[in-house]
Structures are given as C-alpha cells and as structure tokens.
C-alpha cells in the first residue's frame, strides 16, 4: 500500500476514521489477512486505539485476523439458494476439498465458507470466488468446479515463480 493510495483514500472523507474500512480491505487484499503490522499501521495513521481497530475488524464477516486459503470459496446458504439445493452444494464442496465449511485445505489453496445472501438469488444456488459469481451451481457441477479452480491456481503459481513476488 503506497503512501499515495493512503492519501487518495483519506482525501475522500472529512474525518480520517472513515478510511478504516477501505484501508482494511486494501491491507487484506495484499497479505491475504490482516497482519498485526497492518493493524498497528492503521491505528497509527488514523489516530485510533488498537482496540478501536480490532473491534471493527471482528464485527465484519469479510475481515480475517489469521491467514486462510489463497482463495476463498463462498457458498450461499440463505433461503433462495437453500430452496434450490445449497446444502447439497456445500456438502459436495466439503467432499471435493476434503475439509469442512470454515476450514482451509492442507495445501493452503482454498478456504471454504458458508455465507449469507449474496444478492444474486436469481441464479441460485450461488457460489462466489473473488469478484466472480457463479450460478446456478448444481451439486453435480462441484467436483469439476474445484478441478478448474485448482488448474487456475497452478497456472498463477507458475507465474509467480518467474515474477518477483509483490510484497506490498
């Protein structure tokens, strides 16, 4: 996170505390989770006590204080998705990844998460990975879905072996 980025975000608000959520998103995007160092930096930059930062972080479902998988697989289990088979979709993901919902695979590639309505119920059951929404995802699709994600990860890992790793 460059000084310029921080400045640009701070300039959007009359009070610097409002920049907390946007900056938390950026920190998490860079490290995959919110490191102690990031939390210290933000509390200093925004003039907040460490408690004020942590209570915000723990309030919101999207923030993580511990490293998880490189990619998160979100499966919606709210009503519209559940009516069309979301529980079976969750179970197929658990089988295909060999983990329970809320856990991370041994190789550190994926974290599986049950989430509430993703505001895409028209394509239920819905799965979100990164910015992408997928649906309707039927239980039969899941094994292949996971294979495709693994293949994508293999490609991007290969890439990073040749490129200098971005370390923020």
């Amino acid at each position: 996170m460059t000084e310029e980025t921080i400045h640009k975000i701070l300039s959007r608000y009359p009070h610097r505390r409002s920049a907390l959520l946007p900056l938390l998103h950026l920190c998490q995007q860079e490290a995959g989770y919110l490191t102690d160092e990031a939390l210290r930096l933000l509390s200093k930059r925004l003039g907040l006590s460490p408690t004020q930062v942590v209570e915000v972080v723990t309030f919101y479902d999207m923030f993580h204080l511990k490293p998880g998988g490189q990619r998160e697989i979100w499966v919606c289990h709210n009503l519209s998705c559940s009516l069309l088979g979301a529980e079976k979709v969750v179970r197929r993901f658990e089988e295909a990844l060999g983990i329970g919902a809320g856990e991370t695979t041994q190789d550190g590639l994926f974290r599986l998460k049950r989430v509430e309505c993703l505001a895409a119920c028209g394509i239920a059951p819905v799965v979100q990975v990164g910015a992408e929404y997928y649906g309707p995802v039927s239980p039969q699709d899941v094994a292949q879905f996971v294979e495709r994600l693994r293949a994508q990860s293999a490609v991007s890992n290969q890439g990073s072996a040749f490129l200098p790793k971005a370390d923020g």
């Binding site: 959007r12 608000y13 959520l21 946007p22 938390l24 919101y60 479902d61 999207m62 923030f63």
Partner: peptide
C-alpha cells in the same frame, strides 16, 4: 461522489 465498500454485515 465516492463509493465506499462495506465488509459483510447485513
């Protein structure tokens, strides 16, 4: 106008 992202809380 500035967009501002939430972080997963109904």
């Amino acid at each position: 106008i500035h967009p501002h992202r939430g972080a997963g809380a109904y």
